[in-house]
Amino acid sequence: MSTESQQEKQSLSGRIAVVTGGCGGIGTAVCARLAREGAQVYAADLRGGDTIKADEVIFHEHDVSSEESAKFLMAEVERQHGRLDILVNAAGIEIEQTIEETSLEDWNRIFAVNVTGTFLTSKHALPLMRKAGSGSIINFGSYDGFIADPALAAYCATKGAVHALTKAMACDHGAENIRVNAICPGFIDTPMLNSFFGSSGDIESLKNEVRRVHPLKRYGTPEDVAGLVNWLAGDEARYASGQLWILDGGLTAQVQQMRL
């Protein structure tokens, strides 16, 4: 229920947003937040439409690795709204392997989703942002694009690629008032994180250790990430572009925490 005064506080009122991976751990929270701020949100994902609760979030079946799918998605947005204001490239997968263990097929698959997906969705979103007169693209990098977790080689490489792509896109499209940033999350409580822990034994004690290592003594939540997405998407961030926003509870501000 929204009263007049609440509507005034909405920062994204009337904006059109597409969120890839919109039914995933972080994507779901992002869609909910953007919708709460007044945006019309398309949750673009392979599946998961049945879990969407908010009226302002529309599920759109989307495979980020397919150019046909990207064209179809943007054609639908254009038909409905004639423009696009916000694109969040949140679709991503990880493969827990060293490069020796990684098959070419797996390598190509993770690049298809994490890198090619960001490329294709952005490429076909740009004409609609041009029609809007401005736009904000928010990519998902990772703190793993700066420092490596063990046996996540291909994932680390895809995130490094997204970081560089973010800067390149920001340079190329800044003159059209299209801003491009990347959020680089640390440990966020999502199914992907649980899967990463799943291969490592006693999950609860692991989680406590992980909390201990963070300066803020907790994990990030998908809502923490959604808060930064909301800011980057909106007018408050109108001069922010080309940056890699590390959101990690202070994790990477410190030297490795020896158990002294």
Binding site: P150, F196, E209
Partner: peptide, 12 residues
């Protein structure tokens, strides 16, 4: 050292 993540579950 600083190229590696501070969080390595295998160490815990």
């Amino acid at each position: 050292l600083v190229s590696a993540s501070p969080l390595q579950p295998t160490l815990f």
